[in-house]
Amino acid sequence: MTAMPLKNVLITGCSSGIGLAIAVKLAKDEQKRFKVYATMRSLAKQDDLVAAAGRCMGKTMEIKQLDVCCEESIRNCVSGIPDRKIDILVSNAGMGLIGPIECQTIEQMKTVMDTNFFGLVRLLKEILPDMKKRKNGHIVIISSVMGIQGILFNDVYAASKFAVEGFCESLAIQALKFKLQLSLIEPGPVITEFERKVYEDGLKMDLSAADKETADMFTNVYLKNYKSIFQSLGQTAEDVAEHTMKIILAENPPFRHQTNTLYTPMTTLKYADPNGDLPIDTFYKMVFQHDKVFNASLNFIKLLRWRSNKSFDLGKPQS
């Protein structure tokens, strides 16, 4: 069997979570098919990645600085790779934001869009021309099920992922002409430091700008169920990395791939009704009218996963 030639993989957002897991998974590939350029905004946060990579450091993995919100940073990173040759781009860097929009500043919203959407755009403006010239390359974007279907109190985050999905859906047509592959990885809830921070920021949010009913809804409905949803439906970053590697190795990788089969019935509602009323009505009834059934269902799933040793915990918020 002929060995696959070494492929250069550039991954963003590798200091923790999904990015770290993907970088380590590819660098530790037993067949040594990848040279991983694991990047992060601040190299001061590389310790966890270095520890997880172990003997791969300096061999199948190199760590580089890259800030997706800075064109110069992206250019410097890409130019530091031999011949600027990137066979696979894994766009993972992102940030979250939850809560009532009355309590969020426009600047906070712009930062989410700048990182999650324009960060991808900046990467592709720098990397896509070289891929087009070579007529070879795979662009893998860590999107979200919230790029398909909005969720209560995730308005701005969902908007950023919807933007990514629409952008990629348009770009995929052009990519075909240049023999490029483009794949959207769409996880549901994933237990990472990213999610812990989003949750803790939500707990500390100043809700004074919201009316009492909205503030109560966020605190006693959304945040109250947050941990249960993650414990019942959550995946590990390593699980998402496993899915990502399979997509990268696939001969004909799909354009969209959801990593969590437990979540798939919820996103399927979007396609079941062209009017778009079904998913909104279903989520509304599930949250506000049948909350006891909803919680019972989550507890049942959690029990099944606990019995199969697949239960995860967000842990206690930092004091």
Rank of each mutant, 00 (worst) to 15 (best):
E242C: 13
L262T: 07
L223K: 08
R305W: 04
A21T: 07
P187D: 05
R307M: 14
L249K: 11
F162N: 05
A250E: 10
E72N: 13
V198S: 04
L128I: 10
I247R: 14
R256C: 00
S311N: 14
I191D: 04
Y157D: 10
A241R: 10
K179T: 15
R256F: 01
P82R: 03
F255Q: 06
S232H: 06
T261I: 13
E62Q: 14
G99W: 02
V9N: 04
R256P: 00
A93Y: 10
F118I: 06
D67Q: 01
Y271N: 00
T192D: 01
F118P: 05
L298Y: 07
L97E: 05
M113S: 10
S297F: 10
E165A: 02
L180I: 12
R256N: 04
A53H: 04
I191F: 05
V90G: 00
E242H: 15
P82F: 13
N260G: 02
D211G: 11
A159Y: 13
E242Q: 15
I86Y: 09
E195M: 12
S319F: 15
L89P: 06
A272E: 01
V240F: 06
L152G: 01
E193T: 11
Q235R: 05
I280D: 13
I18H: 04
I18Q: 08
A52W: 01
R84H: 08
F300T: 13
Y263I: 14
N309L: 07
M109P: 06
S297M: 04
K285I: 12
M266P: 02
E169V: 06
Q174Y: 13
F230I: 02
R84W: 08
L298T: 06
L152Q: 09
Q31I: 08
Y263R: 13
M113W: 12
N309H: 08
A210S: 09
H138F: 13
S42H: 13
Q46A: 11
L10P: 00
Y284F: 09
G166C: 12
T12D: 06
K212A: 13
G99F: 00
V140P: 07
L123A: 00
D114S: 04
F288W: 03
R196A: 14
Y222P: 00
G99H: 03
F153N: 02
M205W: 08
C168Q: 09
D216V: 02
G17L: 02
G94Y: 01
T282I: 03
A215Q: 03
